[in-house]
Amino acid sequence: MNKNIVAAIAIAVTLTGCKTSPTGRTQIALYSEQQMDEMGVASFEQMKQEQTIEQNVKTNRYVQCIADALIAQLPAQYAQQQWEVVVFKEPSANAFALPGGKIGVHTGLLNVAKDQHQLAAVMGHEVGHVIAQHANERVSQNSLLQVGLQAGNAALEMGNVQYRNAIMQGLGLGAQYGVMLPFSRSHESEADVIGLELMAKAGFNPQGAVELWQNMDKAGGERPAEFLSTHPSPENRIALLQSKMTQANSQAAEAKRQGRNPACK
């Protein structure tokens, strides 16, 4: 039984093949873009039903202005998509983007992202998750992980191993802290890089990304150790962004030469 399960894992990975992310990282995606779009659209519709939507015209116009500037610089398959941008009346400093062309921004984020450049950094980061197909990777990885744990459980049952439950719990924790969370941190770092390039090409000031995370650091309070977190520490995020700043500044300067100079207020 366990051999069959392991073989199934190998066949699934072989059939899907490997994809390459925008930064050149190898990734596995078991689901089609259509399937992911359907998931994203369904989730967004549910959020709109369950959460309060901000009705302030100026706020919505401001967020839409930034989104339009960023979307115009996306790869063609995404730039041509019909994007929906919704501001949710929610105090947490958060934003998200979903497959299917959906962007959500919480009003609480506007208290931390002080200007268009800082908000563009967050929104660019979130759209970066979409164009890098991170949701597909995460769902695919979770599917493979569950199959792997089932295979381990089957092997232990066949071998009549003592303390099977304790061992399986240990395997589960090891998978979470050794696979799922670090993988999520790699997504966050990749989205930071993609978002920085995107905001620069749109004509926003790349330094806004560093300022944003400095603000987030001040507002964050106590945080778990990085190895127990799904996100890199603000210090590490800032260091990564600063290492890419020379190229980003050049891209922003070129954007301005081509007339891309957002003025979202």
Rank of each mutant, 00 (worst) to 15 (best):
C18S: 09
S186M: 13
T107E: 08
A255I: 04
K244G: 00
I71E: 05
S189V: 01
R61F: 02
N165A: 12
Q150C: 05
E90H: 14
V127C: 08
V57F: 05
N160D: 10
A93E: 04
V85K: 04
H187R: 01
R185I: 00
M39W: 14
L30M: 13
S189P: 00
P206H: 03
Q35F: 13
K218V: 15
G40K: 14
V147N: 06
F227A: 10
G128C: 14
T14H: 08
A202V: 05
D192V: 00
E197L: 09
A72R: 13
Q46K: 13
M245Y: 00
Y78L: 03
Q27R: 14
L196T: 03
A67F: 06
T246C: 08
Q247A: 15
M158T: 08
A8S: 10
P232A: 03
V6N: 06
G124V: 12
A69R: 07
Q116G: 11
S32L: 10
S243V: 01
I71V: 14
W213Y: 10
W83N: 06
G259P: 07
I9K: 06
A12V: 02
F44G: 02
N56T: 07
M168W: 02
A248S: 00
A42S: 15
G220M: 11
D68W: 01
I194S: 06
R257Q: 15
T246I: 14
H187M: 04
N205K: 14
N56K: 11
L173N: 12
R260F: 04
Q27P: 05
Q146S: 11
R164S: 15
L171P: 03
L145Q: 10
G172W: 01
L212S: 10
E222V: 00
S243D: 06
A120N: 07
L241S: 02
E137M: 11
N160H: 15
L109Y: 04
G104N: 13
E84M: 02
I238G: 03
Q133Y: 12
E126L: 01
A120I: 06
A219Q: 08
S184E: 05
N4L: 11
H187Y: 01
Q82E: 09
Q34M: 04
Q214S: 12
Q64R: 05
Q116K: 10
R138P: 05
L98P: 07
Q73L: 02
G174A: 00
T230P: 02
Y78R: 02
F204H: 10
S229E: 00
A263L: 03
Y62M: 08
